[in-house]
Design a protein around this nucleic acid. Structure first.
Lengths: 224, 224
DNA sequence: CTTCCCTTCGACACTCAGTGCCATTATGAT
DNA sequence: ATCATAATGGCACTGAGTGTCGAAGGGAAG
């Protein structure tokens, strides 16, 4: 398997996670996810099928890149929230901040999300990633409310925050010109209000924090 | 393939969806889901592997039974709610009612849910079923708020209602003596309140309606 | 330059899910 | 008895994912 660290010895790797992702996303865009076999990707990348699985443990993981690192950033952002911010507003700001993406990768991000939320196989798989995401939110809520992350309230909040975020993604995908930040803020604002009104609640996005590395889905090319 | 309707002609079917589910759940309980192959199930049921796939199109579907019929019942229950009930309280009551299960099948239901929410392969697959579930909720919310089911608000509410319900299931699974109805009502009540308080909101479960056929997950054995 | 060491590569074989094809079998109707 | 019908189950195939193992391609030591 490709090692991170500074590999000084042995045969050099013949490709990278980033390159494989690039090749694969192109194929997915052309023929579709299910119509592209791992064999196809490996051939297009000039490696053996077996070698592909040394870079990504499955065809599904290809689309997610280095999600866990992104999660760490959200955990840090939530943890840095001052206690004067109400819990649900902190969650709202954290999720919105997590999803602030640089305009230059917006197209690629859109394509990736369209796959994740549009291809049944990937929709299903996304649940497993989202469970980790929920874990981060639940931890924060647990810390705020003084209970365990395994208790009902943190898990309900996490589930609901995720639900609101996914609904926002879906909305964003429908409109090529939509502003993801605004939609997310709206959805999570309504959640915080208990869906009590039909009108959207006031925009309460706090001053844009120093944009933390957003979820770009880019694979860790460490050890390149 | 086995046909519903009254089959008068041809070779009789050699088993049923119900029987296969029973056999399979026993094997899953013994060895685990991933450790049980379709071959194993077919052999245990005394049929060929190929025939298994004529009863269930995948090993995953086995666990879900006739989910779509159950959904119809929830759709009907929501649709029958009077306009005087606030939207989120109607959702709350509808979801709680949907999950009212007869005590005699509680054990089986618990085993099924433990699989669905505990085995990664099934967790992932559950998302696709839950999407249908969300569709039912979104339709109701759309009708209530006078917008389309594809709009942001209905989808956010549906996602959040599902999130609260799943968190409640998880809580229920942790405690063998827990009362699913109470936990669900609590979780959805908190959602309706926007998670504004730490204390659980008042129990607002309406008088138990004539228990509509609950989600039992039992396969349609029609045409037996 | 040669040799050794280390790491990645890729071929092969295997399991298991899922699908198409088709001959076989069991039944009711004629 | 014969025929039409519908389910069965064997065979072969694709595609994902895994274990194994020899070969390839480098740096470093001699």
């Amino acid at each position: 398997m490709p090692r991170r660290g500074v590999a000084r010895l042995g045969r050099p790797r013949s490709t990278s996670r980033a390159e494989l992702q690039e090749v694969a996303l192109r194929l997915f865009a052309d023929r579709g996810f299910d119509e592209t076999s791992v064999e196809d990707i490996a051939t297009a990348a000039g490696i053996g099928r077996r070698t592909f699985f040394r870079y990504y443990s499955s065809k599904l993981d290809l689309v997610w890149g280095d999600f866990e690192t992104e999660l760490e950033h959200m955990r840090a952002a939530l943890g840095a929230t001052g206690p004067e911010v109400p819990m649900m507003q902190a969650v709202r700001a954290g999720v919105v901040g997590f999803n602030r993406i640089p305009p230059e990768i917006a197209t690629q991000h859109r394509q990736r999300l369209a796959l994740i939320l549009g291809v049944p196989t990937l929709i299903a798989n996304s649940t497993l990633r989202f469970a980790q995401w929920r874990g981060v939110v639940a931890e924060f809520v647990a810390a705020r409310t003084g209970c365990g992350a395994e208790d009902l309230l943190p898990r309900v909040v996490a589930h609901c925050a995720l639900g609101a975020a996914v609904a926002a993604y879906e909305e964003w995908l429908q409109d090529p010109d939509a502003d993801l930040t605004a939609i997310l803020d709206d959805a999570l604002g309504r959640l915080a209000a208990g869906f009590a009104t039909t009108a959207p609640p006031a925009r309460a996005t706090p001053p844009p924090p120093p944009p933390p590395p957003p979820f770009t889905g880019s694979p860790s090319s460490a050890g390149r």
